[in-house]
Design a binder for these strands. Structure first.
Lengths: 246, 246
DNA sequence: ACAAAAGTGTTTTTTATACACCCATGC
DNA sequence: GCATGGGTGTATAAAAAACACTTTTGT
């Protein structure tokens, strides 16, 4: 808990030349792209098999290096768009990893060139996400529970993203960015169960809580899913949600 | 809410040369350093008056550029240590700002050199924090409510850090990183009030909630503060806190 | 004695949790 | 008619909020 750095040696005044040399960076963006397969109750991450060194043949998070004139978020969208075709998604910045020597490419001989990774977290609609990559064998959804040892520190980034996903789901309406326009309450419940685990809440309590929030509109339209009573279709009311915030 | 990026034009295959040029970065670290003056009930941020262009004579967050061999966090500790002397503090990464053209130094003529800002958020013990800067007039604590227009996008970073401070205070024990080893429950209350606002909770309810958490030890020692009944001194039990987490 | 600060307790309201049960459909 | 999933309600427990009251000090 307590952070007690060694403080105030003012090194810059002792050894100005060595200490003042600035690092030159290339900045990478790595995406933790989640989706939820509600049919099979699986929480998935998108992984890519690396072709080049370092970490050739390891699976990794989709990443890219930031280009001239490109914002970090633009870069995040770019890799996403290069790997999958989706229209409905939520995306936000996660964390920046950048200790020296985290990337093996930062060999001592490439003195002064550092790699920094700004990670982004995304949630996309599984049903519409179409994987686009030349060798299909090099791109794949992996169940979060079954992810192997990844390249770089990507396991750590993934864990961080997974934690964020669980928090976001509880405190903000990102689920509705990824559900179809119209959905049943059970669709929402399945999604939450898959991400948060089966025993996060009882269906009827979940339902009551969700409706009490007041931003779900019952369209009145009923839909049949096999046997059982038909379910109502709801839609997310973004305006009502905004009003709640004030 | 919905993010609908324009997707999949695969620009890299159309115009490979222009698009594939990677940006070269210098990475800056900017600190939002908070402290709480519980005597005067003021929440403070540390600001520095800039001497050089761009934004000469503007107040700004303490920042620095990352040096060779230095981690981001090391850089964050370095600027902190260059500006104030403290032993008790909490520090964590905030957010990374890095759209192109955020820094006026990124003039079109300095083609290819970009500045990226990784911001850190810190909370330090006000009473022991000693400001160290050559011209004293160039460094100062500012009340968060009275901060002027800052250099770069620092107002935005500050706002982001303020939000984080409020969240952290409610959900984690960072207050005890900044309180003395032994403190009264009223000391804790004052700190929370100053950050969260007077009406975040009634003293007796706050007190009950805090004690029920079970990681504050009553030392039995009483201390008198002017008139009124003497207060018990408590200390934070880090082990008990850890145990609660499991 | 009285104001000031610390500390305790009680009541009410709200929210969470655990279930029991009714409803509408397909087979 | 009964299994299946959808939907409602109730009873209990826990947490949050409001507030009244006692205790111990300085003056």
């Amino acid at each position: 808990m307590k952070c007690k750095p060694t403080i105030n040696t003012e090194p810059s005044e002792r050894n100005p030349l060595v200490n003042k040399a600035l690092a030159n960076f290339k900045v990478g963006v790595d995406n933790v792209i989640f989706s939820v397969d509600t049919q099979l109750n699986r929480l998935l991450v998108l992984l890519l098999k690396r072709k080049e060194e370092p970490f050739a043949n390891y699976w990794s998070l989709p990443g890219t290096l930031v280009r001239q004139g490109e914002s970090l978020q633009d870069a995040a969208y770019r890799i996403l768009a290069e790997k999958i075709r989706v229209n409905n998604l939520y995306l936000e910045q996660l964390y920046t990893f950048g200790g020296p020597r985290r990337d093996p490419r930062e060999a001592p001989e490439s003195f002064g060139v550092r790699y920094l990774s700004v990670s982004y977290f995304a949630l996309v609609r599984y049903e519409e996400a179409e994987l686009i990559a030349r060798p299909v064998s090099n791109i794949s959804w992996y169940q979060v529970k079954e992810v192997p040892k990844l390249a770089f520190e990507h396991n750590q980034i993934l864990e961080y993203g997974y934690q964020r996903l669980k928090n976001k789901l509880e405190y903000s309406p990102i689920a509705f960015d990824v559900l179809p326009e119209e959905f049943t309450l059970n669709d929402v419940y399945q999604l939450y169960c898959t991400v948060l685990g089966e025993n996060f809440a009882d269906y009827s309590n979940f339902r009551a809580r969700l409706l009490k929030l007041g931003f779900l509109l019952d369209t009145g339209v009923k839909v049949c899913r096999g046997a059982g009573r038909p379910a109502s279709l709801y839609r997310f009311d973004a305006k009502a949600f905004q009003d709640k915030l004030i």
